[in-house]
Structures are given as structure tokens and as C-alpha cells.
Design a protein around this nucleic acid. Structure first.
Lengths: 228, 228
DNA sequence: TGTACATCAGTGAACGCGCGTTCACTGATGTAC
DNA sequence: TGTACATCAGTGAACGCGCGTTCACTGATGTAC
């Protein structure tokens, strides 16, 4: 049986490894992440890392998980700061937190929202972490429709979506609004990706100001009033 | 001076190289593209490729350029097939062509719309090719507002966008509509990226049907009537 | 409190691999007269 | 139509590099009595 003391230092060392790897990710990007380089930067042999990760992919998974959780926590914090009745404010705050985090951690953002790393298959456990942001956004929409009359979803929506799951995620939200919420979610990340990946060169001059315009257009689209 | 005959065979050989590289891209992804592997598949030495490309990055640039042009041509063709007055039909056709191409060439799509390849800087000449798709989408919006009364753009839009360029690209389109058109453009690619990069797992069951829903929502957003 | 022992962290050398790029070279192909 | 010559396509060996992973090992650290 492993002692608690040893387990603690083991975990701490493992954390040191991922921290170093994260710093390297920021400099070289996901594809260029190298165990040897991480070890070098820590002043250790590359074989030492195998105490903490059985394989390079396991390190990558840890980084992806951390990225999702870090982003999720940032968005949760930002949204929680706004008064519950101010739906538009909550929406703005959450969206801006997404963009702020992405700009602050561009390579981690690319790691989770860019092209999939070739040959890497994401394990199940990343899904829960990935859900945190969407849960925040969904929560705002749910509050918007809290007092709305229920209506059944049209067949084409039910067919297109994983409707039971989506409806459970946004209880009480009518189908068309749920689709629009999904769209808003996609739109926010589409904007951020276009900005970070260079597709706004030539059309958007101040991405921050443009992003705010988009966020407000989306709030109108989702019909989020300033005050209920 | 180079003879026309020799120039032609040189160009043809160069095309054979890019074709092989493209096939390899489809199998291994952008980061894993290797000159040696391409040469091997062609039954040649790796050094032979240096007759056609001075460096690996030059090959990558050629692939990116081809991808943009291939996508652009596909969208142009699809949109041209629809009667000019049927704005919503043109919009649908163009959007679906984007998605169809992306699903047919996922790695090429990732190459141009996914995370930037580390250490690679896109040269200027790719910009023109990249514009072809947006030109098609802009054309539809322009036709929508052909008879609309002109209005000056609000300051916040002018400040956020490269307004002169955008206004020139969509002549006669009012500022707010231009922003929404930009949003629609982003949304379409955001959707496709989410689908291809696996972010719709758990929420969207039939991506094609969902995509069609989104495209129609966007047409409403951009206020594209079925018939003028 | 002291000691014997098991467990862990980290070392250093080695494995086999594939990569991009260079360079002197050999044939083949087209050109000029 | 034939020949001499320049140009090009492709070869094969070599360069130096960095990578992920394995393995037998040495110290250090904590544990049980």
C-alpha cells in the first residue's frame, strides 16, 4: 500500500512536470511537445518522467484536461460575479472570459479547440471537464426561460440533436431557443478561433470591439433581456 | 531562358508531387507530412523533390493554396447553380458546399481552418485564394441590399472593423447587416469545425440536419427572403 | 530511539527510428547550328 | 538531318539532429518493529 506522504510528493512532482510541459506548449505548440525537452528544462533525464507518465499521450491528456478545467473555472468565476437577474451581463461576462482565457493561453486553446492532434484519441474523462463552459452558458438560457410556457419540440429538432441530452441540459428551454443557444455557443468559439487563427486579417481591425458587438447580437438572438 | 516544353513537364511533375503529398495529408495530417515519405510513395529519392520545392514549407504553402482554391471553386460552382433571385437558395447551396467539401477533405480543412502549423508563416499569396469563399457569401448579401436605402455606419462598427475594406467588399450593405454577415460567415465555419473536431459529441446527433437548421436560422438572421 | 528493509526517484547508456537538407554525380532530354 | 553542347531530372550516400522508450543501476526516503 502506498503511503499518504509519498503519494503527496508524487502528485506534487507530477504537477511540476505538467507545469513545465504547459510552459513549453505555450512556446512550441502541441505538436512540438517533447518529453526530452521537458526533462531538459527540469534538469532531469528524460527517463525520469516515466515515473509520472507511462507515455507521451498520457502527458498530453493531462494537459488537455487541465486546459478544459482552467478555462471552465475562469468562465465560472467571471459569470458568478454578475447579479443573477442580469442575464445579459452574465452572458457578456462569460463570453468575454472565454476570449480572455483564449488570448492568454493561445496554444492551450488550440490544443482543445483547434485541429485534433494526429494519432491522439481523447479519453472519456475529458468530456466532463469540457462540459463546464457549456454548463455556464446553458444556465443563463435556462434562467431566461424559467417562467416560459412549455412547448414540445418539433420533429426536425428532435431528429437533428441528441434531444433528450440537450433538453436535460437546458430544462424548460423551448426547442428553437435551444438550437439558438447551441448556435451562440458555436459562434463564440468560432469568433475566437477565427481571431486566433488569423482569419480576421483584413476584415476585423479591433477584435475585442468586434467580439463585443457579436456577443450583443447573440444576446438579442437568444432574446436575453437586460432585466427580466 | 527556359523552354516552354521543359517548363510544362516541370509543372506537371510538381503537380504529381503535390498530389501525392495531398493524399498523404489525408492519411497522416498536416504535422506528419514528410518529404521523405512523399518521395518514397512516388518511388523516388527524397533529394529529387528539391527540384520542385526548395523546402518543406514551400510544399506546405502549395497545399494550403490548393486547398483554398479547391474549396473556393466548389463553393462558387454550387452557388452558381441556383437562380440569382433565389437568395435563400444561393445561401443554402453555398453553405452546404462548404460543409460537403470539409467532410470530403477533413485534413485539408484542418490545414486551413484548424490550429496554425507551428513555425509556419503563411505568405501573402494565400490571402487571395482564401477570399474566394467569402466573396461568394458577400455577393449574396450584396444582392439582398441592392435596392436598400443607404445609411452611414455607426462609429462602433467603423472602429471595430476594417470598415473601408469591408464596405468595399459588400457595397451598399448597411453596417449592421455587414456585421451580421461576418457573423454568419464565422458561424458556418464554427459549425463545421465543431463537427469535424468532435465538439458536438453528446449534443448533435445528425450534424447534417443540424447544419441545415443553422443555415436557415442564419438566413433569417441576415434577413434573406426566399424571393425578393 | 534505533535499525533492517522495502519502496521509490532519478541516472546514464543504449535501442532503433525518421526527419530535412546538402552535394557531387550520372544519364536523359531538348536546343542551336 | 545530324551533331555538339547545355540544361535538367533524379541518384545515393552522408550530415547532424531529436525523438520515445527500455533497462539495469544507485541513492535517498519513508516504514515497521
Amino acid at each position: 500500500m502506498q503511503s499518504a506522504k509519498r503519494a503527496a510528493t508524487h502528485a506534487a512532482n507530477r504537477e511540476r512536470v505538467t507545469a513545465t510541459a504547459r510552459a513549453q506548449l505555450a512556446r512550441r505548440g502541441a505538436a512540438g511537445l517533447s518529453l526530452r525537452e521537458v526533462a531538459r528544462e527540469m534538469g532531469q533525464t528524460s527517463s525520469a518522467l516515466y515515473r509520472y507518465f507511462a507515455t507521451r499521450d498520457e502527458l498530453l491528456t493531462a494537459l488537455i484536461l487541465d486546459a478544459y478545467n482552467d478555462l471552465g473555472a475562469a468562465v465560472e468565476r467571471a459569470e458568478a460575479r454578475v447579479a443573477r437577474e442580469d442575464l445579459r451581463g452574465r452572458w457578456r461576462s462569460a463570453c468575454r472570459a472565454i476570449r480572455r482565457w483564449a488570448r492568454g493561453h493561445p496554444h492551450e486553446y488550440a490544443l482543445i479547440f483547434g485541429s485534433p492532434v494526429p494519432g491522439y484519441e481523447a479519453p472519456e474523462l475529458t468530456v466532463a471537464a469540457a462540459t463546464r463552459v457549456s454548463a455556464v452558458l446553458a444556465g443563463i438560457v435556462v434562467d431566461r426561460y424559467r417562467a416560459a410556457p412549455r412547448a414540445s419540440a418539433p420533429a426536425e429538432v428532435v431528429a437533428a440533436l441528441e434531444w433528450p441530452a440537450v433538453a436535460a441540459f437546458m430544462p424548460g428551454v423551448p426547442a428553437r431557443a435551444a438550437v439558438r443557444a447551441l448556435m451562440a455557443w458555436t459562434q463564440v468559439f468560432g469568433c475566437v478561433s477565427f481571431e486566433l487563427f488569423g482569419h480576421y486579417v483584413g476584415s476585423v481591425r479591433r477584435p475585442g470591439a468586434y467580439f463585443d458587438l457579436v456577443v450583443d447580437e447573440l444576446a438579442d438572438l437568444a432574446d436575453l433581456p437586460a432585466l427580466l
